[in-house]
Design a protein around this nucleic acid. Structure first.
Lengths: 113, 113
DNA sequence: CTGCCATGTAAGCAACTCCTTATGTAATGA
DNA sequence: TCATTACATAAGGAGTTGCTTACATGGCAG
């Protein structure tokens, strides 16, 4: 199925490709045209265009027309959301604590049985 | 192609699915058997097994045999790596600064022409 | 041993991904 | 006007994903 309509899924999916992550890294150096962006990759231009479409769908870039060039700009808000999700699940303290809790309940279950 | 051998891609790809993110959220409450894990989802057990395989491949869970149950435990190291990548690209300062720089170069270009 | 329980694996299918080449489309410049 | 530049879109194909049902495995209780 993978209908994946929700924002977070789109962002993580966009980040799951090394080429797209490289594009994002590149865009940290400032807005860049598609041609410049495509140059370092051993890949056809349409392929890059399609990657950019994925990034745009995830809200990670904006494309603005500038004469015959399309200027791509990084948008970091979706990265904030992704970061927030990961951070919420990253800290081990709660997990450790709950694991201990679970262990205690387990032991109790064993003595009951 | 999507041969995606690298760690980060596997992690982001694992996080790109809502079911798998829900599983991770659930595992924050401590180690859980596959059955318990599958219970809240409107999905067959094999489907969950396959999601767990993806999570395991990404290093996000460990499965240890415990009699006829498999106990799934969250591992947060891959989340650390993912978080580090996102954090590295999230801060807007550099981006803003370079964007300004670019803008100045643009203006210079216009006055030159 | 036998049948149940929890789980994994296999096979099949529709949908999606990621690339390709070929073909638009819009702005520039001679 | 006509070619060129910069890019997008279309069509197609190999491989992957995410589900399904059916079957295999391995521990356990009788």
């Amino acid at each position: 199925m993978a209908a994946v309509g929700d924002e977070l899924s789109l962002v993580f999916q966009a980040l799951a490709d090394p080429t797209r992550r490289a594009i994002i890294s590149r865009l940290r150096g400032g807005p860049t045209t598609v041609g410049e962006l495509a140059e370092p990759f051993a890949m056809s231009r349409p392929a890059i265009s399609q990657h950019l479409k994925v990034l745009e769908r995830a809200g990670l870039i904006e494309r603005t027309a500038d004469a015959q060039w399309r200027r791509c700009t990084l948008r970091t808000e979706p990265l904030d959301e992704a970061s927030a999700w990961v951070e919420r699940h990253r800290d081990e303290w709660n997990e450790r604590f709950d694991a201990l809790d679970e262990r205690l309940r387990e032991l109790k279950g064993q003595t009951d049985a």
